[in-house]
Amino acid sequence: MANRAHTKSHRGRRLVPGPDPRVDTLLGMVMALTSEVSMLRERLDAHESLAASGKVPDQDAVDHYQPTEADESRRKQYRDRLIDKVCRPLVASGQQDG
């Protein structure tokens, strides 16, 4: 009774969801890269915050830096702007061709 066709179709892993695997692959690469850019921007932000408070921004200090509420707010703006910028051509392309 539980083995209905609609559940059987979800067995295993789907590799890509869209009609063109190349789009999914490329989007995966772009987003992984964007994630690294975002992380590096936050790491730079930690450097700047440490330096501003007179601390040496060495690797250990940055690795253990706990962002303040003000840091988090600033970083959220960076992230949102970055995602909006990277995804803008995607959305514009969809709107033109949809």
Binding site: V16, P17, G18, P19, D20, V23, D24, L27, G28, M31, A32, S35, C87, L90, V91, S93, G94, Q95, Q96, D97, G98
Partner: peptide, 18 residues
């Protein structure tokens, strides 16, 4: 056949993988 829908799907899928 919406291009935006297909790209949205790819973006959801990618975000889940990440």
């Amino acid at each position: 056949h919406s291009h935006l829908y297909q790209l949205w799907g790819s973006a959801v899928y990618t975000s889940q993988n990440l």
